[in-house]
Simulated assay, not measured.
Amino acid sequence: MTIAEPEARWAELGRQACITLAPLFSAVEHIGSTAVPGMPAKPVIDLMAALDDLDEVNDGALESLGYRIQPADMPRRLVYRREDYDSTAYHLHVVTMDTWATRNERLLRDYLLAHPEARERYAALKRELMDRHGPGEAYTRGKTALIQELTDAARTGRGLPPIPVWEE
Rank of each mutant, 00 (worst) to 15 (best):
T2H: 11
T2F: 06
A4T: 09
A4P: 00
E7W: 03
W10I: 05
G14F: 01
Q16A: 13
A17L: 04
I19R: 14
I19K: 13
I19M: 06
T20F: 00
A22D: 06
L24R: 07
S26M: 07
A27H: 15
E29G: 02
H30F: 10
I31M: 09
T34F: 03
T34Q: 05
P37K: 08
P37C: 11
P37I: 08
G38C: 14
G38L: 13
P40C: 13
P43H: 07
V44K: 06
D46S: 05
L47Y: 09
A49H: 05
A49Y: 02
L51K: 12
L51C: 08
L51A: 11
D52K: 14
D55W: 06
L62S: 08
Y67W: 04
R68P: 00
R68Q: 08
Q70E: 11
P71Q: 12
P71M: 10
R76Y: 01
R77A: 05
R77P: 01
R81S: 09
E83N: 04
T88P: 01
T88Y: 00
L92F: 06
H93V: 01
H93D: 08
V95F: 06
V95N: 07
V95Q: 07
T96D: 03
T96R: 15
T102M: 04
R103E: 14
N104S: 14
E105M: 15
E105Q: 15
R106F: 02
R109S: 10
D110I: 11
Y111W: 15
Y111N: 11
L113A: 10
L113E: 07
A114Q: 14
H115I: 11
A118R: 07
Y122F: 15
A123M: 14
M130R: 02
D131Y: 00
R132D: 00
R132I: 01
H133P: 09
G134N: 04
G134F: 04
P135M: 06
G136T: 00
G136A: 10
E137C: 02
E137D: 11
Y139M: 12
T140L: 11
K143S: 08
K143L: 05
T144A: 15
A145I: 08
L146N: 11
L146W: 11
L146H: 12
I147M: 12
I147E: 02
E149R: 05
T151D: 02
D152H: 10
D152R: 13
A153H: 03
A153W: 01
R155W: 00
R155D: 02
T156R: 15
G157E: 04
G159P: 05
P161C: 09
P162N: 13
I163S: 12
V165Q: 10
